[in-house]
């Protein structure tokens, strides 16, 4: 069911801009929707992170995946069980840049009446490719928003297109993004237990990304777009003087609409893992709770059973067996 709902969503996300473009609603498609989406994204993202950041971390609960720092002659594992700030920084870097925990992934099967644990790096590999190519593509897009073009965008584009296949050259990141998103989607549909846990909101972002990448490739290689017009449109947004140049195609509007949809989608759901991963208390705290006291801002007194109450109840017995008592 969720998959059909998601497909319906995507069909609308493609048909609506096609229809609106042919009806001549270019102002809506080119200016109103993208700018509104951007505002929702920025405001929503900040708001979500602020809500998280303001909620307290009452206890120091890192999950430790390596040897603790204890006796001086036992080698501690700084990256998997950090005991200080640098260790935490290293651990977070490995998580965010290399998806360390996902790399650990195993696959459990029953084989001859016992469980076996095979290595599986698919999710890690395609997950990482997906994110890395997404990032590369984002940075490359900066050339549409900067004049003169920021050097980083050009350098990256040069590396990305180094194989010089076709004219204009095909970017590796585009291929990777398509392949990785397709893999992640197929995996969701094909593996029974992953399908079982998937909601519409798990398919939709992947489908949107596929649409964005697909329409992007179309504009670059087949239904070629006038880049000058796009730059004019973009500089209009940035300088707050909206302009609607000639030469924007229907495919471009589909691309832009799907990007807008993804931007709006972002702060509403799980894509916020981008911000959340940095705040995860099981990862970003040092395992030093015996060395340094962690303070809970809402720590409140509780009802306890005191020694006096205990002795009161058991005094005679304690005296009978020769245990010392505070009050005779």
């Amino acid at each position: 069911m969720p998959i059909f709902a998601s497909l319906l969503f995507i069909v609308i996300a493609i048909l609506f801009p096609l229809f609106a473009a042919s009806a001549g609603w270019h102002g809506l498609l080119g200016i109103v929707i993208p700018c509104a989406a951007w505002a929702v994204f920025v405001f929503g993202f900040v708001w979500r992170v602020v809500v998280w950041a303001r909620s307290p971390v009452p206890f120091r609960i890192p999950v430790t995946s390596g040897q603790q720092r204890s006796l001086s002659w036992i080698k501690a594992d700084a990256a998997e069980n950090p005991s200080g700030r640098w260790g935490v920084a290293l651990r977070m870097f490995l998580e965010v840049a290399l998806f360390r925990s996902l790399f650990r992934n195993t696959r459990t099967d029953l084989y001859k009446g016992r469980p076996v644990y095979g290595r599986t790096k698919n999710l890690w590999l395609f997950g990482w490719l997906f994110h890395a190519s997404f990032l590369v593509i984002l940075v490359r897009h900066l050339r549409l928003f900067s004049e003169p073009v920021v050097p980083m965008a050009d350098t990256l584009a040069a590396v990305d297109g180094m194989f010089e296949i076709g004219v204009p050259t095909l970017y590796l990141s585009d291929l990777c993004l398509l392949a990785a998103a397709a893999f992640l989607l197929l995996r969701r549909i094909v593996i029974p237990r992953v399908r079982y846990i998937s909601l519409a909101q798990d398919y939709i972002p992947l489908l949107l990304v596929l649409c964005i990448a697909g329409s992007g490739l179309l504009m670059r290689h087949f239904d070629k777009i006038d880049l000058v017009a796009v730059k004019e449109l973009a500089s209009g947004w940035i300088c707050f003087v909206p302009t609607l140049p000639e030469g924007l195609t229907a495919v471009f509007f589909v691309h832009l609409f799907c990007v807008s949809a993804l931007l709006v989608w972002f702060p509403l759901g799980k894509l916020m893992h981008m911000g959340g991963v940095f705040l995860s208390p099981t990862r970003n705290l040092a395992n030093d709770s015996r060395r340094r006291r962690h303070v809970n801002p809402w720590n409140a007194p509780v009802k306890v059973h005191t020694y006096e109450e205990y002795e009161e109840e058991f005094r005679n017995q304690m005296k009978a067996v020769g245990l010392p008592v505070d009050k005779e």
Binding site: R48, W52, S101, L102, N105, L123, G127, I191, R193, V194, I197, S198, L199, D202, K270, M272, H273, G276, V277, S280
Partner: peptide, 8 residues
């Protein structure tokens, strides 16, 4: 909030 239901 942040689970992506990747199933890892």
């Amino acid at each position: 909030d942040i689970c992506v239901r990747c199933g890892a």
